[in-house]
Amino acid sequence: MFRFLIRRVLGALVILLIISAVTFFLFYAIPRDPARMACGKVCPDDLLAQVRANLGIADPMPVQYWHWLEGIFVGRDYTGVGHCNAPCLGYSFANNQPVFETLKGDIPTTISLAIGAAFFFLIIGIGTGMVAAVKQGTFLDKAASSFSLIGSSMQIYFVGYIAMFLLVSQLHLLDQPSYTPFTDSPVAWASGLLLPWLVLSIIFTANYTRMTRSQLVEQLSEDYVRTARAKGLSRRSVFFRFAWRGAMGPIVTIFGIDMGTLIGGAIITESTFSIQGLGLRAVRAVTDSDLPMLLGLTMIAAAGIVFANIIVDAVYALIDPRIRLA
């Protein structure tokens, strides 16, 4: 297990390094000029050159990339601004703050969105999946399946607005989505994010309903379940102690992937509900041509995806001893 983890983490770091290099060098192919943004209303060419130097984008590309890598491990100095401690992802072109500090402020929002949504779609998805599996072939089963199928065909950028129109503008049942830190007020935190959570869970639930149902149906027909039943174990304990355990592996897998998606791909969700987290930050970094911010975001998102994969594999192995880690 330990060797497996070490190998996977090393592999992940190599992947992240490659992604950072690709992002960095592609950025310079963009016909954009971040310096113009940090230059006044009237910006003669010599002033523009000065700004470029101030931003540190006058150096050749490989040199800049090297400084960036250096910053992550040992930190780096910025003339006139001060020292940026490791892990230093650079200073934002747009707000002149360390990227890492800015992103640290956005992470709780995005995580809150993901965790709350996960809470709902896991409960609803696994719950309906179980019901469907136990009541196989009944009306309940069919209703659960078709409901989840319809849900999975919806897109957040449509359902999100419809939900806001109906529940917020028309019926005034929920608040306009907003983010309040949990530490400030747990109630405001939950009520502000409730609508996005529900909409996300409608869309994500389907996978879990289907997966839970098919896994349980399969497990319940396995020999060991029959043996356990024959030995006199109650239906209930067979269900929860054996069948459920066997079914969990694939569910953990898709859950890991979905969490990666929710954290790494929060752009559309946050744009729809206009909640300021990593996703909207990314949108803003793109319009500002804020390379340090963009790189930082890419790295965080990629790391989220890569490490979610590793965790999933490890958990999978823990749950299902048949899987050997190699």
Binding site: I15, L16, I19, P31, I267, L297, T298, A301, A302
Partner: peptide
Amino acid sequence: SRVIDIVLSFPSTLFFIAFTPVVYGLFYAA
């Protein structure tokens, strides 16, 4: 397999919005 790993690890939405202009920029002057 490694290339596949890398491609699947890219935050693709972010990549799309950031780099669509690159593709245009390669073929079209401003």
